[in-house]
Amino acid sequence: MVEAQVKTELVPRRRKLEYVVEVMDVKKYYKLGKVIVKALDGVSFNVKRSEYVSIMGPSGSGKTTLFNMIGGLDRPTAGKIYIEGVDIAMLDAYELAWLRANTIGYIFQTFNLIPVLTALENVMLPMIFVGKPYDEAVEKAKKLLELVGLGRFIHHKPGELSGGQQQRVAAARALANDPAIILADEPTGNLDLVTGLKLINLLKKINTEQKVTVVTATHDLKMVDVSDRIIWIRDGRIEKIEMRRDIEAEVREE
């Protein structure tokens, strides 16, 4: 009896979750010689399911560090991060790889497609890692590439695609295993104004149609228009959190 009780407590929390991401007093310190750099100094916030949240701040504010930690790509010095109710610091290498493959879809500033693989194969990669049968993976990848408007480019290699197209392949890849969250780090950073705007609209479309939670780290102000909430980071701390409806109200008042 006692043993059974202990066991249920050890199982990661799997209650019906309101929050997909919970960040609790997260700190990240780096030692640079004798100086301790506080990249993040006590950051807390939650992200609701199907919410579109942008983390904004100047470069060096700690937003990429925060982003990496939400994605399980880096570990905090102190504090906790829960993804789908699971404390990611408690995961071993196997579970972390499984989380990265299934729960999170990443989009990077530099696209990071595998150059020797075609668009289709790039989108298939995360599905191969979770052991999805080959034919199913092909079908799913084709559908996703159509969703991002690249149905005609499935056999193109990244080098044969424009930056905007590559980032759309990356968006399709991020969706491969139906993740709960898409994490996009400066997704428009290497795109011009028009293609950047197209990508932002694509992310919003994915967010509303597929009910995927989107978290972006960015300093692209175009992102404000589609975000439900904007978390402003400065010097490793949250400066303010704005709801979009408040911003819109402000604009109307002016």
Binding site: A97, N102, I114
Partner: peptide, 9 residues
């Protein structure tokens, strides 16, 4: 790094 962020061990 890319492969690892999509589940490669």
């Amino acid at each position: 790094g890319t492969m690892k962020s999509f589940g490669a061990r």
